[in-house]
Design a protein around this nucleic acid. Structure first.
Length: 503
RNA sequence: GCCCCCAUCGUCUAGAGGCCGAGGACACCACCCUUUCAAGGUGGAGAUCGCGGGUUCGAAUCCCGCUGGGGGCACCA
């Protein structure tokens, strides 16, 4: 037995990778990286019924996006492949039959209908539901005959009927179960596929897995697995069950009806993988009383599996959003952020294809624009709406917005004319010059700064909410700014008589 | 019903017998900054450490019980 750390993330392709799975993958990955071990991706596709065709691709895309790269897996192979369980079927059958031969497992011919009936009767009597071990005591000759006849059968494990099974969980210590309460679990289904239990144990053994990090919901099956390892004569990996991620209201596991749960959904909504990773790492783990922003490298260095808090944590969307914003505002460099915004702006048709190339003027402009909204973005996707007017004409706006409270409409019209006149000779590359001129004008006209600046903002952006006015003017440039101001003046001039008529 | 796990502000958590009349973050409130919106700054409110027993000179921290929450009891993983 080698003391190398080898861990795996083993999702089943039944749908999207959700945040719970992502957290499990993350902790496995962190543990592997910090110990110089191997992180393995294994696909557990043993359920032909629940299988969803495209989900493997989605899971792989999700993990890649999060930056959780694996050392062995279905797409890249490795020394202990294949890494897809449906491609290892003979191995599982062989091991199930080996246990039958050794008298540690048996064929069961019970139909699903009978099993269901038995469970219902048990429930009615207030007993725990489970298999009644009907076929465990079939005579060998009878078994042979029914198999020869081709009767559908599963292979079940013979759990010890007495004694106790104690497993050791890294976070919880010893957990003991009475064997008489454990089930004769199915190892091999009648369709020839293994169940999770068999495939998982066999693969973890042959893939030399040293530590099993999986969700807490698996604790009850751990004693079953322990007995399986024992029956095969194998050493069991170290067990560590990770606390569950609960819904925000704490009622049950996080699920779709609580909002986005798929990793790719978060991506689509404009979350950064860095923020996701950081947030997920903090769900159940903390470094100290202060720090909570960690780079990937810091996490690898500081994460301690043994310090994971064993109690379930609720998923808090607000905190994740805050963290995403924090990363955008304070962690990403301007270029990094701009590069990530380019595809979104292209998709919206605001920016040409060439902006992907950082040496182009198109990119340089995006970069300048992004700088103005950097600390206003909570989600990457918001960049499109927040900066639209930098790339295209302003949207039509209500002329009423060009008026300021407690200022005569005619005064505003005059003020706009003066703004145009003042800016015509301004140095648009110099924010300070723009500011000096406009403040001076406000004073000269006897207007409060807000009374003058808001109409300018509306004229130039079409909005009442925008980045700082002077930097906006600077980036838009003289020509564009003056054109929009002139248009605003026309709009207002045309509107005022109508307004007066309406009373 | 049975088995198992867990338990500190609304939420995520720090805390491994005295440093805790419990610290940080999100959310919330107020103020400052201010051309809008953010960001930032300062301050505030918010936890009798679920309850009850022990052990100890001393317990959020150790033990027991209770309660509460969560998970599991498939030819699903």
């Amino acid at each position: 037995m080698t003391d190398q750390v080898r861990v795996r993330f083993a999702p089943s392709p039944t749908g999207d990778l959700h945040v719970g799975g992502a957290r499990t993958a993350l902790f496995n990955w962190l543990f592997a990286r910090q110990h110089g071990g191997a992180f393995i991706l294994r696909i557990e596709d043993t359920d032909q019924v629940r299988l969803v065709g495209q989900s493997i691709a989605g899971i792989i895309e999700s993990l890649r996006w999060l930056g959780l790269h694996w050392d062995e897996g279905p797409d890249i192979g490795g020394p202990y492949g294949p890494y897809v369980q449906s491609q290892r079927l003979p191995l599982y059958r062989e091991h199930a039959e080996r246990l039958v031969l050794a008298g540690q497992a048996y064929y069961c011919f019970c139909t699903p209908e009978r099993l269901e009936r038995v469970r219902q009767e048990q429930r009615a009597r207030g007993e725990p539901p489970g298999y009644d071990r009907h076929c465990r005591y079939l005579l060998p000759a009878a078994v042979e005959e029914r198999l020869a006849r081709g009767e559908p059968a599963v292979i079940r494990f013979k759990m010890p009927l007495e004694g106790e099974t104690t497993i050791v969980d890294l976070l919880r210590g010893e957990i003991t179960y009475e064997n008489r309460l454990l089930q004769d679990l199915v190892l091999l289904k009648s369709d020839g596929f293994p169940t999770y239990h068999l495939a998982n144990v066999v693969d973890d053994h042959y893939m030399r897995i040293s530590h099993i990090l999986r969700a807490e919901e698996w604790i009850p099956s751990a004693p079953l697995h322990y007995q399986l390892y024992h029956a095969f004569g194998w050493e069991m990996p170290v067990l560590c069950h990770l606390p569950l991620i609960l819904s925000p209201d704490g009622k049950g596991k996080l699920s779709k009806r609580h909002g986005a749960t798929g990793v790719l959904e978060f991506k689509r909504q404009g979350y950064l993988p860095e923020a996701m990773i950081n947030y997920l790492a903090l769900l159940g783990w903390a470094y100290d009383a202060e720090q909570e922003i960690f780079s990937r490298e810091e996490l690898i260095e500081k994460f301690r599996l043994e310090e994971v808090n064993p109690h379930p944590a609720r998923f808090n969307f607000e905190k994740l959003l805050w963290m995403n914003q924090y990363y955008i505002n304070h962690v990403l460099s301007l270029d990094d952020l701009a590069r990530r915004c380019v595809p979104l702006l292209q998709e919206a048709g605001l920016v040409p294809l060439e902006a992907s190339d950082p040496s182009t003027p198109a990119y340089a402009y995006v970069r300048e624009v992004v700088a103005l909204v950097k600390d206003r973005l909570k989600l990457l996707t918001e960049v499109v709406d927040l900066t639209r007017f930098f790339f295209t004409e302003v949207e039509d706006y209500d002329p009423e917005l060009l008026l300021a409270r407690k200022v005569e409409p005619e005064t505003m019209l005059y003020a706009l004319e003066r703004v145009i006149e003042t800016l015509r000779t301004a140095d648009f590359s110099d924010e300070a010059d723009l500011e000096r001129r406009l403040r001076g004008l406000a004073e000269e006209l006897g207007l409060k700064t807000g009374q003058l600046f808001m109409p300018i903002r509306v004229a130039v952006t079409g909005r009442t909410v925008s980045p700082g006015l002077f930097e906006t003017l600077r980036v838009l440039g003289r020509e564009c700014s003056l054109t929009r101001l002139a248009a605003a003046r026309e709009k207002l001039a045309e509107y005022l008589p109508r307004r007066a008529a309406a009373g």
